[in-house]
């Protein structure tokens, strides 16, 4: 992939940025998420986490299956405050 490929579309994070943090020694996906915001957008990392995990497995020499993935947090899809409040009429 070219290095300016966008890995996390929600937060506009490029592959190059992810690689920079990995090179600095951040090899835990939880730390990468918190430092770059990759995976903190509306899609909750559905797209980017596989890309990040692949990069991570390359650096850490572990298979993607051995790496833990961040918790999916509710809600599953973005939901508005008024829907949550049960006030669907306005």
């Amino acid at each position: 992939m070219p290095k300016n490929t966008i890995v996390c579309r929600c937060e506009d994070i490029t592959l190059e940025e992810i690689r920079e943090w990995l090179q600095m020694g951040y090899t835990n996906i939880e730390e990468i998420k918190r430092l770059t915001r990759a995976g903190m957008g509306p899609c909750q990392g559905r797209t980017c986490r596989t890309h990040i995990l692949r990069e991570l497995s390359r650096v850490s020499e572990m298979s993607p299956a051995e790496l833990t993935i961040p918790t999916f947090r509710p809600p599953v899809k973005p939901v508005s405050l008024k829907t949550l409040a049960g006030d669907g009429n306005d």
Binding site: M40, G41, P42, Q44, T71, R73, P74, P75, P78, V79, S80, L81, K82, L84, A85, D87, D90
Partner: peptide, 9 residues
């Protein structure tokens, strides 16, 4: 009120 919530923890 139209603000979308995306994550809760």
């Amino acid at each position: 009120k139209s603000l979308n919530i995306i994550r809760q923890w």
